[in-house]
């Protein structure tokens, strides 16, 4: 099973999915992220799916689960870079991804996390 690497940039964890996700990799990523948020005290998670060709219900549910787990550690999650064909398919599949914040690209995603951080009195991308 391939694992998805998690990078730390300041107070943000960046997950860029570059592999064809099998279900075990999805579950491993959820666990790895929970560990990493807890260990680093990150305040944000960005999941970059610009290289992901399909999002089915299992992968879609992962985004919601990761967002919920992050919330428990006072961290926010943004999913960025969704391909148009994936978005159209998700809607038709019936997956609403309620509660999952999205942004067009990585840059905007980082900005969203910065703004949330500012609202909560954190300073930008600095780690706590």
């Amino acid at each position: 099973m391939e694992r998805v690497p998690i990078l730390k940039i300041g107070g943000v964890l960046l997950v860029s999915i570059q592999i064809d996700l099998q279900d075990q990799s999805v579950l491993a990523l959820q666990e790895d992220l929970a560990e990493k948020i807890s260990a680093t005290g990150a305040h944000g998670v960005v999941i970059d799916i610009s290289a992901v060709e399909i999002v089915d219900s299992f992968i879609g549910r992962m985004f919601a689960t990761i967002a919920s787990i992050s919330r428990l550690f006072d961290a926010d999650t943004v999913v960025v870079g969704m391909r148009p064909a994936v978005a159209i398919t998700l809607v038709e599949l019936g997956l609403t991804l309620g509660g999952v914040r999205t942004a067009l690209d990585l840059e905007r995603g980082m900005r969203i996390l910065e703004n949330i951080g500012r609202e909560r009195g954190r300073t930008g991308l600095e780690a706590r």
Partner: peptide, 17 residues
């Protein structure tokens, strides 16, 4: 089309699972 490919592959993924 790319959208139809994506729809079919996504359906196949659900059904294979």
């Amino acid at each position: 089309s790319l959208v139809d490919q994506t729809k079919l592959v996504t359906a196949a993924s659900e059904l294979a699972r």
